[in-house]
Design a binder for these strands. Structure first.
Length: 823
RNA sequence: GCCCGGGUGGCGGAAUCGGUAGACGCGGGGGACUCAAAAUCCCUUGCCCUCGUGGCGUGCGGGUUCGAGUCCCGCCCCGGGCACCA
């Protein structure tokens, strides 16, 4: 047992003991109530950085707290071990990504251990383990069989830097790759997709019941982007309104069918399939060159060309009949209409849509208002509510009624109907990379795409590949992997060489943790039923859309195909998103070169001080600047606790009857317990630490007072302090507990202290006396004071009398804290 | 443009239900201990002045209320998300 506080020795010893005693290993049939807490499994990039420390400090606090409150806590850790950095390192160094990755995992694991975070390491998973690959592939095949995975040729996002296609979610708003920053181009490739759009409505509806930060819920709602409106057909015609001989019709989606009388032109996306068929011969050359230009232009350039709208659209020479007016309107192509949203075609109503207004002005098209703008309106397009005008049978109706009436009319005419459209697109999962989970299908000239039978899983990439900067997966060049036989007909066939997006791996790892050694299935449904949904998920807000949306989709889809129990519709009941660590306003990151290495601090002040500093600096959800992290103050606090708990402060305690001071200390102890417990429940760790500091200061004053401390009151005060600090500063509290109770005593096996209700009420309280709402005096009064006594005492105050002449008009009393006189 | 957060001392932050604004910590000032320093311990610390039984004070302007950091209306600023989504 250490005599002086030596964090390195203490921390190493307790970390070893937690591992030896298997304190935090938990079985699925544990009789205690189950609690599943999970930090997002990390990509193994080497030693932990401050963001990890912060994340695992919060996670570990919950594990230890919930264990002390009597729960069987599932606390697993794993590694999101597929991904681009390992493959890029392989290209640079020639080393296999597995060797590189396994080293990074060991570095990260050892720094996670050093902060004292505890896990059930028996359950560790790694995305690149063959057993995990098998699970990922089996899930893929089941989704394929259920029609939830499919292949389609489509223009996809291609990142020239990463040499791969990207999901929409990985393309930033400015059209660049979220990883490399390169402008993303469009390419036509046959790719695998998951049908997440089938779940758009469920994903939207179920957000409501999640205990997630409102910010994250809003981001998901926006991403799904539901909009209600109508779809209808516009018949192709000539400039005089005569029907086109081929009878083509263009279907458009609009949220404002009520404004249809104001449609003065229509627009197709450049990629729209009808473009060649409808374009007038004399306009063909110009139209095709426009289409070519639009296709060659990356999204980033499409956006930057804003302002030159005349160049961004072209007339097709064709017309469409506005079914509401019966009149022909010109049909344009414009790159501001997206082929991937709605029907890829719009009716344009310049008076009620600013983009249409701008385009109409640039091209000299008519503008007809169908909603009267408010009095004094000096803007251009008006999209708000108002009374319809110029709209025949819609005139006089408001916006909402107008929409309903227009839809009724479309349905009665048989040319359209109400329609809900989502912004969410299907999830493109193919990646032309090596270091990912292979897509387990075979391409056969006779049979087409053939799934690899489940009993032949996993399909694992070979090791003897060459990593060259060719921009192609080395799998394509590996004859042994590429050439195989068709599982269906036995003929020669080629393996799929694309791998899956690593977000596929992270979409089910939380399920695997419940049953990590299952060789038959990714996981057993009963095991999942015992733990899911995750009671507390913790991670960075940067995953608010991608990972969290995909994991939700997987949970629903896997439940629908019978892998996950039907009752589990959501993976994460409660989500907490922690703030970022900044240094001088910048995000702390390797690429910015402004990292503060946790190791140095662990070597100096120790893990407990670092953990407390992270907890104390401010609300966990807020970003923190490293400069404001009060490491010294927390280290000082720990040494105050150290001396106090070892009886090195003040006079020696004695056995005696309780004095008022003793009773007051005991009351303070129980108020502290209540405060910390409440703060833990509401994720207010900074105030929990503050409450512990405050109590420590009170105990210091108590033991240094004129009277010797009473042993019972002092022991209770110190024990309670150690117990509530145990989840926050686990090593030093364990050491001090063993010092006080014997070497076998284990503080983390103790029950969480419970505040006695009878102790929470102080004997005397501060009564605030106000006159006209201003504080004029404060009086110490017995807690059980009556209203009459309180008012009498307040009236007797000279300070009150100075501001109150005569009788008050009104007296407001809120016992026992407030008496307020109204003059 | 739309949607979320947020704005409180020199600094990080607290105030949980409309009731003492500034808990706790950092930093500052003073003192004790010491030959001295470090460490430690104690006191003090929103601003202003005519120093009182004083005034002001939670981004700005209004309002509700006996009483507003907290509720309502209108702005300003900062951070984040989404954005030719028809």
């Amino acid at each position: 047992m250490s005599e002086v506080y030596d964090p390195q020795a203490i921390e190493a010893r307790w970390q070893a003991r937690w591992a030896d005693e298997r304190t935090y290993e938990v079985d699925n049939d544990d009789p205690r109530p189950h609690y599943y807490t999970l930090c997002m499994y990390p990509y193994p990039s080497g030693s932990a950085h401050m963001g990890h420390v912060r994340n695992y400090t919060f996670g570990d606090l919950i594990v230890r707290y919930r264990t002390m409150t009597g729960h069987a806590v599932l606390s697993p850790m794993g590694f999101d071990s597929f991904g681009l950095p390992a493959e890029n390192a392989a290209i640079k160094t020639g080393r296999h990504p597995r060797a590189f990755t396994d080293e990074r995992i060991e570095e990260l694991r050892s720094s996670i251990l050093r902060i004292g975070a505890v896990y059930d390491w028996r359950r560790e998973v790694r995305s690149h383990d063959p057993s995990y690959i098998r699970g990922t592939q089996l899930i893929f095949l089941r989704l394929l069989a259920a029609g939830l995975a499919y292949r389609k040729e489509s223009p996809v996002n291609w990142c020239p830097g990463c040499q791969t296609v990207l999901a929409n979610e990985q393309v930033l708003a400015d059209g660049t790759c979220e990883r490399s920053g390169d402008p993303v181009a469009k390419r036509d490739l046959e790719q695998w997709f998951f049908k997440i759009t089938d779940y758009a409505q469920q994903l939207l509806d179920d957000i409501d019941d999640l205990e997630w930060p409102e910010r994250v819920k809003t981001m998901q709602r926006n991403w799904i982007g539901r909009s209600e409106g109508a779809e209808f057909d516009l018949d192709l015609c000539d400039a005089d309104g005569e029907p086109h001989p081929d009878g083509h019709a263009v279907r458009v989606f609009t949220t404002r069918p009520d404004t249809s009388f104001g449609m003065t032109y229509a627009v197709l996306a450049p990629e729209h399939p009808l473009v060649p068929a409808v374009t007038a011969p004399e306009r063909m050359e110009e139209v095709l060159s426009f289409v070519e230009r639009a296709r060659a232009t990356s999204d980033i350039d499409r956006l930057s060309s804003e302002g030159s709208l005349d160049k961004r659209g072209v007339f097709t020479g064709a017309h469409l009949r506005n079914p509401f007016t019966g009149r022909p309107v010109p049909l344009y192509l414009a790159d501001y209409v997206l082929s991937s949203y709605g029907t890829g075609a719009i009716m344009a109503v310049p008076a009620e849509d600013q983009r249409d207004w701008d385009f109409a002005v640039a091209h000299g098209l008519d503008i007809v208002r169908t909603i009267a703008p408010p009095e004094g309106w000096d803007g251009e397009a008006y999209s708000g509510d108002g009374v319809h005008i110029n709209s025949e049978w819609l005139d006089g109706l408001g916006k909402v009624d107008g929409i309903a009436a227009a839809i009724t009319w479309l349905e009665a005419e048989g040319i359209g109907e109400a329609k809900v459209t989502y912004r969410l697109r299907d999830w493109l999962l193919s990646r032309q990379r090596f270091w990912g989970c292979p897509i387990p299908v075979v391409h056969c000239d006779g049979c087409g795409v053939v799934p690899v039978p489940e009993d032949q899983l996993p399909v694992v990439a070979p090791d003897d590949v060459e990593f060259l900067p060719t921009g192609e997966s080395p799998l394509r060049a590996h004859a042994g992997f590429l050439h195989t036989t068709c599982p269906a007909c036995g003929a020669e066939a080629r393996r799929e060489t694309d791998t899956m997006d690593t977000f596929v791996d992270s979409s089910w790892y939380f399920l695997r943790f419940t049953d990590p050694h299952n060789d038959e299935l990714p996981f057993d449904a009963d095991a999942v039923a015992r733990w899911l949904p995750v009671d507390q998920y913790i991670g960075g807000v940067e995953h608010a859309i991608l990972h969290l949306m995909y994991a939700r989709f997987f949970t629903k889809a896997l439940a629908d195909i019978g892998l996950v129990p039907p009752a589990v519709r959501e993976p994460f009941r409660r989500l907490f998103t922690q703030g970022m660590i900044r240094l001088d306003g910048d995000k702390m990151s390797k690429s910015k070169g402004n990292l503060v290495a946790p190791e140095e601090i662990l070597d100096r002040e120790g893990a407990d001080a670092l953990r407390l500093a992270h907890l104390f600096v401010g609300p966990p959800q807020d970003d923190v600047d490293w400069e404001s992290v009060g490491l010294d103050g927390c280290a000082r606090f720990i040494s105050r606790i150290w001396r106090l708990a070892r009886g090195e402060i003040g006079s020696a305690p004695v056995e005696r009857g309780a004095t008022a001071a003793d009773e007051e200390l005991r009351s303070a102890t129980h108020r502290m317990i209540a405060k910390v417990t409440e703060d833990f429940e509401r994720w207010s760790y900074n105030t929990a630490v503050a409450a512990c500091m405050e109590h420590t200061n009170a105990v210091y004053r108590y033991v240094q007072g004129d009277d010797a401390p009473q042993r019972a009151a002092l022991d209770e005060a110190v024990d309670a302090l150690l117990l509530v600090l145990a989840p926050m500063a686990p090593h030093v509290t364990a050491e001090l507990w063993a010092h006080r109770r014997g070497a076998d005593a284990h503080i983390h096996a103790e029950a969480w202290p419970v505040a006695e209700a009878g102790r929470l009420v102080a004997d005397t309280v501060t009564l605030v006396v106000q006159v006209n709402g201003k504080v004029r005096d404060t009086l110490e009064v017995p807690a059980g004071i009556t209203e009459e006594e309180a008012v009498a005492l307040a009236r007797a105050s000279e300070k009150v009398a100075a501001h109150l002449s005569g009788e008050p008009r009104k007296v407001i009393v809120k016992l026992p804290k407030l008496v307020s006189f109204v003059a």
